[in-house]
Simulated assay, not measured.
Amino acid sequence: MRVFDLAFDYLLDTTPPGKDPDSHSRRLKADHQLLWTKELCEGQLFELVVSEDPKVRRKNYLIFEQTPDKWFTFGSDAITNSYTRWGRPKALVEAKAALSDEQKRRYFNPPYTIGSGMIWPVRTVHLPTLNTARGMRIRIADRMDLSLECIRRHYANEPGGPLADVITNYGDFFELFGTFEKFVEFFHFQDLVTPEGKIDFFLEEDEDEVFERPGVPVTKDEYIKVREASLKFIALRGNRMADWVEENHPDIKVRRQ
């Protein structure tokens, strides 16, 4: 029987060992196919398949064929970050250094579990991708809460923030889900959104100062808040995924943390 395991670490499932799970973990790819192959808002099946077409930018990417003439290529992305290997800004380095040994063990080098897994569309004519831009643009700093605020603004036709150009380039992907609420539900992001439809930011002050400062935590207290919020989000999202698998794939055994 196939097992969907919330605690499985995809870092342990790469061929060859030590490679990036987003590119080299077969189990992560299979779990992406399992989770995201479901109906879109208009009833069309969002069916992800492994492409063997040599014309695709990288063989074995996940593909969704919307029509015979329109298809999407997807790559995998870990949407949370521990900043363990970030060597700047200086304030972040100092914040990490101020942590206790116990805190470092909790926050540094976490496992890559499914609650942190996401897919984004990839096109060579539209670079950077969302995956790349989220990590490289300092006012996002790889934070999913800030990324989701940019996506919310896109759907609401509001000024889009640091990812506006990239999201616009991939606007046809976001159109697949119709509304921000449907996008959030499809990818199990409900725990990053308040009942009023606002983003539940990892740092409290972000609601008033969003995008006016770098997204990266710059004090010890900020680092702890961001990491605790990230870990909570991963756990909650993973359980939403497990609930969905149990409801829609009773033949698959779900192993929770």
Results as ranks from 00 to 15, higher is better:
residue 46 F to L: 11
residue 17 P to V: 04
residue 34 L to D: 07
residue 83 Y to F: 15
residue 185 E to P: 06
residue 99 L to P: 01
residue 215 G to M: 02
residue 94 E to K: 13
residue 195 P to T: 10
residue 164 A to M: 09
residue 43 G to Y: 02
residue 182 K to T: 14
residue 115 G to I: 01
residue 79 I to C: 11
residue 242 A to N: 02
residue 132 T to V: 14
residue 223 Y to N: 01
residue 50 V to S: 08
residue 27 R to Q: 15
residue 242 A to S: 03
residue 184 V to C: 09
residue 48 L to D: 02
residue 221 D to Y: 05
residue 56 V to K: 08
residue 15 T to G: 03
residue 250 P to H: 09
residue 139 R to Y: 11
residue 72 F to D: 08
residue 202 F to E: 06
residue 41 C to D: 05
residue 74 F to I: 08
residue 42 E to Q: 10
residue 34 L to T: 06
residue 60 N to P: 00
residue 49 V to P: 00
residue 198 K to Q: 12
residue 122 V to E: 01
residue 41 C to K: 11
residue 111 P to M: 09
residue 65 E to I: 04
residue 99 L to N: 05
residue 22 D to L: 09
residue 31 D to W: 03
residue 148 L to K: 04
residue 226 V to F: 07
residue 76 S to L: 05
residue 182 K to I: 08
residue 116 S to P: 02
residue 203 L to H: 08
residue 140 I to A: 00
residue 210 V to S: 00
residue 206 D to T: 13
residue 205 E to N: 10
residue 32 H to S: 07
residue 254 V to K: 10
residue 68 P to Q: 09
residue 22 D to R: 08
residue 239 N to I: 00
residue 21 P to Q: 10
residue 39 E to A: 15
residue 3 V to P: 06
residue 20 D to T: 06
residue 167 I to A: 04
residue 57 R to M: 07
residue 72 F to Q: 10
residue 69 D to M: 09
residue 123 R to F: 10
residue 16 P to M: 04
residue 72 F to P: 09
residue 26 R to A: 15
residue 128 P to F: 08
residue 183 F to A: 07
residue 193 V to I: 15
residue 174 F to P: 02
residue 250 P to V: 13
residue 125 V to A: 10
residue 179 T to D: 08
residue 181 E to M: 10
residue 192 L to K: 04
residue 40 L to N: 01
residue 227 R to H: 10
residue 214 P to L: 05
residue 53 D to Q: 03
residue 92 L to D: 00
residue 194 T to R: 15
residue 245 V to N: 02
residue 104 K to S: 01
residue 94 E to M: 06
residue 158 E to K: 14
residue 85 R to V: 02
residue 228 E to R: 14
residue 9 D to A: 05
residue 166 V to H: 01
residue 7 A to F: 12
residue 219 T to I: 11
residue 170 Y to W: 04
residue 155 Y to K: 06
residue 187 F to P: 02
residue 129 T to I: 05
residue 16 P to V: 09
residue 242 A to R: 00
residue 131 N to E: 01
residue 88 R to E: 15
residue 198 K to F: 10
residue 18 G to K: 12
residue 29 K to Q: 13
residue 253 K to M: 12
residue 47 E to K: 10
residue 153 R to I: 01
residue 195 P to H: 05
residue 234 I to R: 01
residue 251 D to P: 10
residue 43 G to C: 04
residue 35 L to E: 03
residue 36 W to A: 02
residue 4 F to E: 05
residue 29 K to C: 05
residue 132 T to K: 12
residue 157 N to V: 06
residue 148 L to P: 13
residue 61 Y to V: 12
residue 233 F to D: 00
residue 209 E to P: 05
residue 257 Q to I: 09
residue 110 P to C: 05
residue 227 R to E: 07
residue 136 M to R: 12
residue 187 F to R: 08
residue 78 A to K: 07
residue 172 D to V: 14
residue 119 I to A: 03
residue 198 K to R: 12
residue 249 H to F: 13
residue 25 S to A: 13
residue 87 G to P: 07
residue 133 A to K: 12
residue 240 R to T: 00
residue 91 A to P: 01
residue 9 D to E: 06
residue 158 E to F: 03
residue 230 S to D: 12
residue 102 E to I: 06
residue 132 T to C: 04
residue 247 E to W: 00
residue 195 P to D: 13
residue 70 K to A: 06
residue 139 R to M: 00
residue 10 Y to K: 09
residue 173 F to I: 08
residue 204 E to V: 09
residue 94 E to F: 04
residue 253 K to I: 14
residue 170 Y to C: 12
residue 132 T to S: 12
residue 176 L to F: 07
residue 185 E to A: 15
residue 42 E to H: 11
residue 25 S to D: 13
